[in-house]
Design a protein around this nucleic acid. Structure first.
Length: 262
DNA sequence: ATGGCATTGCAACAATGA
């Protein structure tokens, strides 16, 4: 099973690139973030023609997430399943061939004193609760997305510049630590413990030519699934050429698990 | 220290992003 997560910064603006990428890489699952479209504006025909089913949670202009899969998507859940409705479309889950897949677009937070950072903290707390209370035992889970968190200094080209920001501070690092301690593996980091590799580069400042990036997009897998991870990589080339997203696909490949998956 | 770039869109001298 080949799985990827990609913040496309508008699916309609990136449709050609996404279709090309699907045709070339043929992932079994692609989690998208920042599709920036309502469900009725989702390019369902093109995605279907490319051979993919889709679970879409959209909104106008901002945010929006989706899960694409070659196999049918079951038990689609839009947003948090407990508590009050989230005004922003940032979470979608679906089951694909017995694996629960979540596509998450975690809030950025603007600045640590901005109400958006309070929203980010609350959102992160809700996600932990959701994972703790709604995770069905025995079902492997992939938590994919744009986390807007730099976990460690190795995940930034210039960590000093980000230290204390909404992306990289002790609170955010502790949240990631807690999440990973609850039974998730950061597939890229397990495969490449020492590699400085990034999933996002600012459109400005010549960040990409300078390779001044951040690793803020993750494919996290529950332990039994992570044990089957045989490769993990960033498709850095997707940041090249005309009209790229500022994020690239983060990919993880897993050996198939035993058949008869209950 | 600032802003730079890209996207959507009641098109804005705006809002948002990371």
């Amino acid at each position: 099973m080949k799985v990827a997560s990609w913040n496309v910064n508008s699916l309609r603006a990136r449709l050609g690139r996404v279709l090309d990428w699907l045709a070339r890489e043929k992932p079994d699952v692609l989690c998208l973030q920042e599709i920036k479209a309502q469900e009725q504006d989702f390019p369902a025909t093109e995605i279907r023609a490319a051979g993919y089913h889709a679970a879409v949670y959209g909104q106008k202009s901002y945010n929006g997430v989706a899960v694409l899969a070659r196999e049918p998507l079951e038990d689609v859940a839009l947003g948090f399943q407990g508590g009050p409705a989230d005004p922003q479309a940032r979470l979608v889950a679906a089951t694909v061939t017995g694996v629960r897949v979540m596509s998450a677009y975690i809030p950025n937070g603007a600045t640590v004193t901005d109400p958006k950072y309070s929203y980010k903290r609350a959102w992160l707390a809700r996600l932990q609760t959701e994972l703790r209370t709604r995770r069905s035992p025995g079902t492997p889970l992939l938590l994919c997305g744009d986390f807007n968190i730099v976990h460690r200094a190795i995940d930034a080209a210039t960590p000093a510049r980000w230290e204390g920001s909404v992306l990289f501070n002790p609170e955010m690092c502790a949240w990631m630590d807690e999440l990973l301690a609850s039974g998730f593996v950061d597939t890229y980091r397990r495969q490449h413990p020492e590699t400085r590799a990034y999933s996002w580069w600012d459109y400005r400042r010549l960040s990409f030519p300078n390779n001044d990036g951040l690793r803020i997009d993750y494919v996290l897998a529950t332990d039994e699934l992570a044990a089957r991870c045989r490769a993990a990589w960033m498709d850095r080339d997707e940041r090249k050429g005309s009209k790229p997203s500022d994020h690239v696909p983060v990919v993880a490949e897993f050996d198939d698990w035993p058949s008869g998956r209950e």
